[in-house]
Nucleic acid binder design. Structure first.
Lengths: 229, 229
DNA sequence: CCAAAAGTGTTTCACTTACACCCATGA
DNA sequence: TCATGGGTGTAAGTGAAACACTTTTGG
């Protein structure tokens, strides 16, 4: 009977795994806890869900408050609810993963004096609670998903070169891709818009810039097209 | 307020979308609500999470209590947390989807006098709360997942014919498959064990029976094999 | 002997893979 | 002129898709 348990509710939190790409390395954004328990430990940004906001809203709010990020790609990942994952009390955390263009957020400006920093996703300091497990789940999800859904673009600047895009996939998939095959395939898919611009300030031949054509992708998807790298 | 902590806590529930396969039709198990609100409405089995059980445990317990099902394939689906999805109070529901062999559960024996019944997944009565949305998400997930992971077998009896398996995929994917190609592909994968038994009591040539070879699948998976129908 | 489903091979086509060289640019 | 990455085409191989008839069995 619901009434029986009305006085015993788990706490409900969100946790965000924010990925960024830094020169061919996948990074994750962590904050240093400034409250007990585990004060000083690095942890995923997140916090408790308020009664008047949806889970997505809570995730976006926490991201804004703790890392000053907004308008990022955000997707629910999994909900972690083991009984003793938090020493204080029963806490259930809805995990999200986010993708940001790291170039525009080199070090997250910690608003309220909380320390925030990017770490290699594969090599973080010890994390609070079960956050290592959450990070791991996010990595797996990213790896599994990036091939079938054009979410990788969220990690790049709006305008990018084909080599940047290829490096992105090589980084996430952890294997090298053939340059000619990659370019052929991605261009034939028809979801990139070739721009009349080229890279600036490089010490070699400047590459052509492209951007992801959201509209074209949506139209293709409706016709049963499958994005797949 | 019952809690001494600084945050008000939403209620936390689980909801289970239980799929079964009945003669080429995908069905879902619903129970009729016997308490307010929405008493008499059909809904997904589920209930509130207790303080001393994990989310998975809660889902299994509710399934057992409300539908008498146990030992079924169960996987977390998504967490639904819109602010007003329940008229009583703020309730966040962690949704699960389950697959059962319907032949062994023709009508779920409702233990505590609660009415339970199988409905066509694509054509249910009006559901309580946002359960139609949850069902929809589960259908999409099933459809997307069944091709890349051998979960469909959970819907069949332990021993099955290749035609049954093919019908299963045709049902879930909502498109016809070529018989010869299907058999070739699935047999070459090497995850089926051919039995020395044939179908009984059919008014035509009896088909050979197979069963899914879990061990073989696990071994292949370790070697980087990809199940894909 | 008829109805109903089981079972079986081959060809075609598309896509993936492997692979190496010249080009443009700035230092 | 050199170092650096940008940019390009073709051939071989692999896997997917299309396709029709014979076999077995019970009624």
């Amino acid at each position: 009977m619901p009434h029986t348990y009305e006085y015993l509710r788990p706490m409900l939190a969100v946790a965000c795994v924010v990925f960024g790409l830094d020169d061919g390395e996948l990074k994750v954004l962590l904050i240093r806890r400034d409250v007990e328990p585990l004060r000083g430990r690095w942890a995923l940004p997140g916090g408790f869900v308020r009664m008047d906001e949806s889970l997505d809203d809570a995730a976006r709010r926490e991201l804004r408050e703790e890392t000053n990020l907004r308008d990022v790609f955000l997707e629910q990942l999994y909900t972690f609810g083991a009984v003793r994952r938090d020493p204080r009390d029963r806490v259930v955390s809805v995990a999200y993963f986010a993708l940001v263009n790291l170039a525009e957020h080199p070090v997250a400006a910690a608003t309220d004096a909380r320390e925030a920093a990017w770490f290699p996703a594969a090599d973080t300091p010890a994390l609070a609670f079960d956050h290592a497990e959450i990070l791991d789940a996010a990595l797996q999800r990213l790896k599994g998903k990036v091939r079938y859904q054009p979410i990788g673009f969220e990690l790049l600047p709006e305008k990018f070169t084909l080599s940047q895009l290829q490096r992105l996939y090589e980084t996430i998939l952890e294997r090298p891709l053939d340059k000619r095959n990659f370019r052929k395939k991605i261009l034939l898919m028809g979801v990139l818009q070739e721009l009349d611009e080229i890279q600036q300030d490089v010490a070699h031949r400047a590459a052509r810039l492209y951007k992801f054509d959201e509209g074209r992708y949506e139209r293709l998807k409706k016709k049963g097209f499958n994005f797949e790298v």
